[in-house]
Design a protein around this nucleic acid. Structure first.
Lengths: 331, 331
DNA sequence: ACCTCTCCAGGGAGCGCTCTCTTCATGATC
DNA sequence: GATCATGAAGAGAGCGCTCCCTGGAGAGGT
């Protein structure tokens, strides 16, 4: 009933534990006959190495913690970001033989849990996802000096390598597109300002407008649909004559679309809307959303690969992926 | 530089390893003085127990594998299902002090990986998410006899406890609603037929219609938006005079909405549409979707709790959550 | 006063594996 | 034929922890 051990396999094969270990770990210095003997015994007994015993001595776990910041309330639970990023990162890490341990970091309590977990040596590396600037977690974890990367640049002055997309370039393209369409009063719905992606997109919006002497009209959201709804209401109130909106992500753009519909504005005739991210839903909005493609899955995969590289002693160079405007019907 | 061990703490506190172990594990049979001594030493040294060593002897890992079936291609990557379910389950499991190990089960190779992983004793329990009927994985894992639960009833004849929502009741409500609106030709877009949720929703659709002597008009999708688009095209071709559609989930309903828009049908005037799930996006479609609320987060949490109960030797009773029609504008 | 019982601390075996070191056999070299 | 280099197999220590068992001290009973 008990699971067979290395020793049992060795006994069965009539060789030493060492030889079995060598075969199981694929070392070269084993003669074919012994290898054969061991393999058969392994198969017959259904032997599977005990990972706890192994990592007790090797000090490795082959596991990676993927730490995703979790909104306090039941907020944003079905964001595409989460599934795209977690899925893509998992694929990449699993393909490299690493286990993905998912941790949600929200409450202070969960922060402690994460810290304990990581410092207990449960994982060989850490991948941070959608950290907010104010979050103390990255700094805390950095002190544990394990290999660590971030999906998206961190706002805090902690030196953590990352993969990001070209937020500045992407947002600039979006705004330039609106300008080229002859739009005069271009507003923006920014993301949470404690995230670098939001900051960069807002900066690019401002600078691109400033170059043409236009003034910026800004409302702040938090990357959720409902915040897009509300921000758009705010904007319409601030400037009823606006004729274009650049939302810092598609979810908020979709929320904005709803507000505009309710307000009786036609899109794109009265108000042009551009989003960011090019999530699948942007193809299904009415009208389909003009947006900036910045494949989050690719970014997550790049982040994961960066970490895998780090684990092998590779370089810690940040990666920036290009962003590209996708023109559909909303602008 | 090395992490302190139990022994180091014992030396520092001037007590035995056993006492430290007792304190760290919160056992009662320790005098306050010794406890105090140990606690201080733990704090001073920053001691964190080595989980590998611990689980080597306890044979527990405090980790749970959450196994999500992964579509072969880059398909369905941003489904709300994934983020809702994984998040809710994680919250529940983490609150109980369990680690969540996320595994994507897609390719045969990943199946082997999952099987190896689970049989290596890496986890104390398994939670299956969105398994297809044809999937051999549940049967394979069941043989390992670890505590295991499924999010949604399994199609295979394997006795795995589950939490599910009332698919039959929910779908029946949806169809009855359409009937009450005076709809005469009611079609359905079914989900993948190897999943029990799809089967049940389709069955309820058929039976509810049959009771009124109407014939069913069925197209099959796979729970993705694009499959909803295509299924709706199919349906319009099969019966151009249809005046209602019940889609087996909201994503496909949203796809159907797009096809109807392209075909110049007004919703709900020409064609009424009802979805299923009540994902957040259904509030943002045009028109907002009438749908069946079956909170996937709650279901996932219930599934997780079922597993936690099992780990404590609790009963393995399936849980069925109610489903409730939410009437909005699309029907 | 002696004996038993209880309760708490310490001792130490052992969980299953890896990895260094040693031993041994084989073939090459002079 | 003796010596040495080479390479493969075996022995065994030890990774850090838990938990059973033992010892000893104090309490309670006779």
């Amino acid at each position: 009933m008990k699971r067979p051990t290395l020793e049992a396999v060795a006994a069965r094969a009539g060789v030493s534990k060492s030889s079995v270990s060598r075969v199981v770990n694929g070392q070269a210095t084993v003669t074919p006959e012994i290898r054969e003997l061991v393999m058969r015994a392994v198969k017959e007994l259904g032997y599977v190495p005990n990972p706890a015993a192994r990592s007790l001595v090797t000090q490795r776990t082959d596991a990676i913690a993927v730490i995703v910041s979790d909104p306090p309330a039941g907020l944003v639970s079905d964001d595409p970001m989460f599934s795209m990023v977690v899925r893509a990162a998992s694929r990449e890490l699993e393909a490299a033989g690493k286990q993905v341990v998912l941790m949600l970091a929200g409450s202070p309590e969960s922060h402690r849990r994460v810290e304990r977990f990581v410092s207990a040596g449960h994982v060989d590396g850490v991948m941070l996802v959608s950290m907010h600037g104010a979050d103390p977690l990255p700094a805390v974890l950095a002190r544990l000096d394990l290999p660590m990367v971030s999906h998206g640049r961190l706002g805090v002055p902690v030196d953590v390598p990352y993969a990001d997309n070209d937020n500045l370039g992407g947002a600039a393209q979006a705004v330039r597109h609106l300008l080229e369409q002859g739009r005069r009063r271009i507003a923006t719905i920014a993301g949470p300002l404690d995230m670098t992606a939001s900051q960069d997109r807002l900066t690019a919006y401002r600078e691109t407008l400033r170059d043409t002497g236009r003034r910026s009209i800004v409302a702040i959201g938090d990357f959720t649909r409902i915040s897009g709804v509300e921000a758009m209401r705010q904007l319409l109130q601030d400037d009823p004559a606006l004729d274009a909106v650049f939302a810092a992500n598609d979810l908020m753009a979709i929320g904005a679309l709803r507000t505009l519909r309710e307000a009786g504005r036609r899109v794109p005739d009265d108000v042009a809307v551009v989003g960011y991210d090019d999530i699948e839903a942007s193809l299904y909005s009415d009208p389909p959303l003009t947006t900036v493609r910045s494949p989050m899955g690719d970014q997550a995969a790049a982040t994961a690969r960066l970490l895998l590289g780090l684990l092998e002693g590779g370089p810690a160079e940040p990666v920036i992926l290009p962003a590209e405007l996708v023109v559909r019907e909303s602008a």
